[in-house]
Amino acid sequence: MIKVQKQDFDVGAEIDALRAGNTAIGGIASFVGTVRDLAGDTPVTGMTLEHYPGMTERELDRIEQEANRRWPLEASLIIHRYGRLELGDRIVLVVTASAHRQAALESCAFLIDWLKTKAPFWKKEETRGGETWVDARDSDDAAAARWRKD
């Protein structure tokens, strides 16, 4: 399931809803991304997330389908917020559920790694010097590349 939303989410409630009634699930993995107070060594006071409505949902849906092709998942969920966020706010939630832990843990890592390099979101950080668009990181490309199947 994909949700692109402005409002916050309740991690526990989302996981409970995702697994409700499915007793084939034996392991659930989750990742929560939050707004950090440092960009390199520059203090950050908040951020705004922009996205491309329409394409965002298509890309997230495609990434989720790919995870389901690679791992035997019982359920999966991606929630990504947009708009203005304060320090410490939740940005993104990835949850994967499977019969066993390995599929859940691996697919959760895959989903967040791929999402970071494919889903059309852009962060603009607020610092004392003003607002700056965040540059893409080579380390994110490297993290995504380890899941590439050639």
Binding site: G33, L49, H51, Y52, H80, P120, W122, W133, D135, A136
Partner: peptide
């Protein structure tokens, strides 16, 4: 057609 920088979500 959309033009944008490399993405930075997550």
């Amino acid at each position: 057609v959309a033009l944008f920088p490399p993405v930075t979500g997550g």
